[in-house]
Design a protein around this nucleic acid. Sequence first.
DNA 1: TATGAATGAGACTTCATTCAT
DNA 2: TATGAATGAAGTCTCATTCAT
Lengths: 204, 204, 204, 204
Amino acid sequence: MQKKRSRIQIINQQKVLDAGTEIFAKYGSRGATIDQIADRAGMSKPNLLYYFKTKKEIYLAVLEQTLNKWLQCMMEWQVTGTPEETLTDYIDKKFRFSRDHAAGSRVFANEIQEGAPILKTLLGENLKKLVNENTSVIKGWIKDGKIHPVEPIHLLFTIWAVTQHYADFSAQIETLTGKTLADKDFYKQAKKSATQIILRGVLK
Amino acid sequence: MQKKRSRIQIINQQKVLDAGTEIFAKYGSRGATIDQIADRAGMSKPNLLYYFKTKKEIYLAVLEQTLNKWLQCMMEWQVTGTPEETLTDYIDKKFRFSRDHAAGSRVFANEIQEGAPILKTLLGENLKKLVNENTSVIKGWIKDGKIHPVEPIHLLFTIWAVTQHYADFSAQIETLTGKTLADKDFYKQAKKSATQIILRGVLK
Amino acid sequence: MQKKRSRIQIINQQKVLDAGTEIFAKYGSRGATIDQIADRAGMSKPNLLYYFKTKKEIYLAVLEQTLNKWLQCMMEWQVTGTPEETLTDYIDKKFRFSRDHAAGSRVFANEIQEGAPILKTLLGENLKKLVNENTSVIKGWIKDGKIHPVEPIHLLFTIWAVTQHYADFSAQIETLTGKTLADKDFYKQAKKSATQIILRGVLK
Amino acid sequence: MQKKRSRIQIINQQKVLDAGTEIFAKYGSRGATIDQIADRAGMSKPNLLYYFKTKKEIYLAVLEQTLNKWLQCMMEWQVTGTPEETLTDYIDKKFRFSRDHAAGSRVFANEIQEGAPILKTLLGENLKKLVNENTSVIKGWIKDGKIHPVEPIHLLFTIWAVTQHYADFSAQIETLTGKTLADKDFYKQAKKSATQIILRGVLK
DNA sequence: TATGAATGAGACTTCATTCAT
DNA sequence: TATGAATGAAGTCTCATTCAT
């Protein structure tokens, strides 16, 4: 029997998660303070702690929520189409994630920089499995002569790098261009450029 | 009259900078503690504070030192050669920076995620100027029909993204491959893959 | 006009008093928390506070309830009989109190250790008067040559010490013997031993 | 190689232990606050925490220090002499402990009331062994017809009860008599009365 | 009568920084 | 130059109490 969560509980917990995502994205799990999170969530610190007993608990929930969305994105790698279709679709999904979950992406980046003490246990072997599936598909393409020979794992890293960059370095990008992925034209342009380079870079 | 710096001073200050770089890379400017830095530097906290009066001073020095090395790397963009030569050389330099200054790169990444409050003043318009120079060159190549038309700034972002990814996400990469850029073969493979994709992606 | 107390009110207030006695006995007036008491009383914290407005109020009520029972016990010192009868009866009553109100006895012990800030005002001169009456009786016995000469107050302390020990140190006693005063045989044995020693110790 | 402890460290740690003993005696492990302890020790809270990292650590050290003194007292049960000599000596030692370590005795009393979560592990089977040795001796006396038949364990409890009572209930005793064991005459009187009653209570 | 939600005060603990040697 | 000792400020968390329903 699962715990009943009243309407207000769900709303407030989500408020905390959203605020926490923003703050953890900026300052990391250690640098972030409950005060900051409570402030951004628009509630008092003790009230926040009524919903999540400890800072760690908030961090965990933030990580988990982001992870779920991220895994969903990762798993939707469509293996049925041609390499061009598959890669285009994958890059599209990753870009969408970067735009819609920029802060979450940065929380991940931070967690990884801190040595991923939590993520490792949350992910376990899941990521490895997903990656193995993806690289297998790429290997197949190469064997079938559909794309240029390239180390599959590095192709994946390249895609991740480019798509996540727009989320993780949005501050820098905004300084240089005045734009973020929230800007529709900029988003299209960024996605188009990245897709072009990568596709042309591997397709025969 | 500038302060005399004895031999031991120079050595110890560098010890602190190295330790600080590692710790700030992991935990950000707020999350890092002087204790951790002193510990890694192998000196007592008060002794460390004899060399740098405050935590902020350490952070600033770390940032500045990394910035100098980074700017040097950025400015060595050789505009004389062909696009192929120029890009190959640039990617090579960025990869070398990622390998030799992985922690510094992560300090940057953190600083940018925190909103780059210090970097902005340290960089001022320098980065914009550099970027403008680079994009001008790329625009010239396109106009001359030497490379496919791409948004120059996004090409730059792509290169940065890929090259920095190996430094900033080394923890994740190590989990998945068991390797880091410190591994010679892995380094070559990564650089080769990235270079291939990007060059093929833009060259005609 | 006194407040009407409904049936449920009386029941719940007693629940709180019982739970409070247990918890205050373990952790003292400061160390005990309303949460613990509410938990043990099987009601929510706000509901508990509907019956007693503050923690102090609970503590006071617990103390007062125990005090009443204790005074009743103390006042039933039967002066009419022989020393043997009187002491036997007194020890019996004190033992019964220890058995039936072990937790209450420990609440007292705690209160006294904390300096008895409340008890002092609740007791006022009552205890002194009672003690004076008792010591007078003992003095009479001595004068009449009925018992060995002994400082009356120390005889009282001895009786209190032994009888209360079984309540206040029941945890230790249980560790060593596996028994408590709730065990009928153990209770008889303890009372018999104590009575024997004390009676033989003072009777001629 | 054991940690070096400078002179001032030893002094300050002892200051904390003494203050801690007093405060824990009054308020128990939960009710006591670091502020109170620091206050009584005459040092600032952070400075106190420089010597003992947590409140629990102080509590443990207090308990351990008292335990050592207590065990020493318990183990000096001189089995060589007559029952009269042995018991007199034992009561004397227990009284001295009550006088010299009254606060420590109350810390114990509190710890036992809280269920002795720490003491149990610190003591382990030690106390049981000690008690078994003592009761064996008493059984021998009874078999040899040297003392009246009594349950040995209850004789021990009686002695403990009376001797500890003067420490654990010193507040009450002071209220009633205006004296504590620190008063030489009162100490002698108390010890004499207790010894008389108990000896006469068991010796033939 | 009962309880989920909210909060200010205060307790524990960490940490940057200073002092004294 | 080096470090043990000390501290104020700030951060995490608990808890008595109140509010609203």
